[in-house]
Design a protein around this nucleic acid. Structure first.
Lengths: 194, 194
DNA sequence: TTATAATAACTAATGTCATTAGTTTTGACA
DNA sequence: TGTCAAAACTAATGACATTAGTTATTATAA
């Protein structure tokens, strides 16, 4: 019975690798155990079953995302903050497609800790849009809009949803600029009709 | 051995109901068979296993979506076409969350029929944006942008990603208007810098 | 250095699911 | 009424998650 000295970080790193290489659905206790050369019941010494493992991956993804946002937003404001935030978001989704999936899953209704961690991430979107002087409802709408835009793009790109052979980075930058232009256009004039 | 006279449409309707009520992941051969009061191997008389069932659901979702787009775009152009298209898209995602999931799944690399059906759906986005006189690359970018926006919103809404208690329909309409304003703003002037 | 306790990893077993092979029997049609 | 395709079945296998209970390693304390 050669003990391998497994700990939670190692387990999560292994699961992360599988997720990012083969997708979150490929993360099973069986696949993780096999990669660690261990029997799957042994994983229960470190993790409370598959749902708990996925939850850990969500936290891990959120922590990485947070780091990126911190770095990206540092010293930026106005349009540049939104651009940097958007690039950080897409960069994460591209480098960690598996963790990105994990982060997207809806938390259990009673999982307040995970909900709070997800809320913190939304907070960075709020910060990125601060420079526009939006307050109250319009600020909430704007945050929802940029989140929709970024998640939609990241999600469609990941699953190969964009067929045409045209540079996706260009689309992305243009899309963000279009959003910024739209926000500005709506600010002076369009607000009354919605 | 009382034969129930199952046919493919009935099977798919049952699977659709489960998907829309409990999510696509709840659609298993076991759950469908149970709802039909049948043993799960019997389903193989109508469907080639679970992946094939999911594929059928994707086609079914695409067909319903197509109907909606046809109806929505009839006689519309310009901004109204984009608004109608967007409402049709969101309406489908809301009424058929399970089919919506099925439609989002990446097709197998060799599944040309499904790829083509998905491409047809993208064609309606192209049609909706026709009124803006975009040609070539800018048209492709714009289609990608609206798809990102719509899918992102539908996806985040479905998984309860929007926490604040503020009317989501308002956000959605405003978001589409912001997009339209952005496209217009980019058309006259902003094109050179991105 | 040695005894003890915590625990990492194990085996065995159960239950769910997808899937395949092979069987029965229904129901349509000749 | 007899025949035959196929709808539904049973039985069996293999992947997976999970639980219970076992073994043995390692850290810690005497």
């Amino acid at each position: 019975m050669p003990r391998i000295g497994l700990d939670l970080p190692t387990l999560l790193q292994t699961a992360t690798d599988i997720a990012d290489e083969s997708g979150l659905e490929s993360v099973t206790l069986a696949s993780v155990a096999q990669k660690l050369q261990i029997r799957s019941p042994s994983l229960y010494n470190h993790v409370n079953g598959l749902p708990d493992l996925r939850r850990h991956l969500a936290f891990r993804g959120l922590a990485l995302l947070k780091e990126r946002f911190e770095r990206a937003l540092e010293g930026k404001d106005g349009d540049d903050a939104v651009r940097a935030f958007s690039q950080a978001y897409l960069g994460f989704a591209r480098e960690h497609p598996g963790l990105y999936e994990a982060v997207q899953r809806a938390p259990e209704p009673d999982d307040d800790a995970l909900k709070q961690a997800m809320g913190e991430i939304v907070g960075y979107a709020v910060r990125a849009l601060e420079g526009y002087g939006l307050r109250g409802d319009p600020a909430i709408h704007a945050v929802r809009a940029i989140r929709s835009l970024l998640h939609g793009f990241a999600s469609l790109e990941r699953q190969g949803g964009f067929g045409m052979p045209l540079d996706l980075d260009v689309t992305f930058r243009l899309m963000v600029e279009t959003f910024l232009a739209g926000v500005k256009a709506m600010k002076d004039g369009g607000g009354e009709q919605g």
